[in-house]
Design a protein around this nucleic acid. Structure first.
Lengths: 183, 183
DNA sequence: TGCACCTTTTAGTTCTGATTGAAAATTGTA
DNA sequence: TACAATTTTCAATCAGAACTAAAAGGTGCA
């Protein structure tokens, strides 16, 4: 099938819409809200710096909603504000590098979600420590629970330290991992 | 602080409650619903085989809700049904191994979430392929979009293949990873 | 400085998905 | 087989998150 030039724009837009919808579905996986994801998807796929109005029109989202979600995206570091000369509007542009986006999201989720969990677990652990339970603490029930908390803690601190290591040097690791995957 | 035997049970319960609450907070990270997570948390931390009534009472959740969430947990493979002799009730018991639980959750999320995304991306890619765009396809816009879709696809297939590899042999990998983390 | 243009905030509304309770279905036992 | 115990299903309800529209707040230019 050959496309005339006039067909190109709507077809491109159709692909972009599919992509935005895709990003919407990915929201859960990335742990961000669907609308935030859609906006980011649009910015990523077009590669352009868009204004709030552009986004409102294209995705049929209210101004306030776009505003709030854009600030969150900027806060996450996935999107940058850009100023155009002779234009008072602000424009927004997505990062381009997939690895960088992934690292940003992952490191923030670690900080917001994983770290507090590990802290709470440590607190649970203390409460079950033999010295805080008195001499009878050799009983079955607390010992078993302590064991399970320890298993979990061990696993999560492992994940934590691997993640940390990755964030600190993902540029270098990237090649290594890509090689590893091809093997 | 020394604890008398009588103090032990309520204190243990208090720690368990904290743990269930923690699991509740982890739900988002694991991609399961909070109530499902709380039920699983209770089963994991107590290490016991509990009946629906036990769970209803302990977590203050309705019977229907417990029933639905337990089936989902069984479906995910995180919880097993167990039968006790001379008792018509069914009892439910969590897996104990943290790595196994993680692998189960991750492999299912991959199948439910990641795989469809990769498929959709491939479809987007085809629609932007030069041959489907006609002779004028060398234009800037589609080329740039195709590039970004390819970047993404490359990243996601990489994640996919690493995950696959992990699921197939996490028992072996486990030791290697633990060593790596200590380095 | 004041105005016109944009963005942010917020109070109220809408929507989605979770939860309940009770009826229906199932299961095991006498 | 019948019945009592238990689980599942499902329509109605509820709660919280997301969204909107409009008012308030900034910002840069004349």
């Amino acid at each position: 099938m050959k496309a005339r030039a006039a067909d190109l724009a709507p077809r491109l837009q159709h692909v972009e819409d599919q992509f935005v919808e895709l990003w919407n579905n990915m929201a859960n996986l990335w742990g961000i809200s669907p609308t935030m994801a859609r906006i980011h998807g649009l910015l990523y796929i077009t590669g352009a710096a868009l204004s709030m109005d552009d986004i409102m029109d294209r995705l049929a989202i209210s101004r306030g909603n776009v505003s709030m979600n854009l600030s969150k995206l900027v806060e996450w570091g996935l999107v940058r504000r850009v100023h155009k000369k002779r234009d008072r509007k602000e424009y927004y542009e997505s990062l381009h590098d997939v690895w960088e986006m992934f690292t940003l999201v992952a490191s923030q989720r670690k900080r917001r979600e994983l770290d507090p969990i590990i802290n709470t677990l440590r607190r649970c652990k203390e409460q079950l420590a033999p010295e805080s339970l008195g001499p009878k603490a050799a009983e079955e029930a607390p010992r078993a629970r302590l064991q399970r908390i320890n298993d979990l803690l061990k696993f999560l601190t492992l994940v934590d330290s691997l993640a940390q290591r990755f964030f600190e040097s993902h540029r270098g690791l990237r090649e290594a991992i890509e090689l590893l995957a091809q093997e």
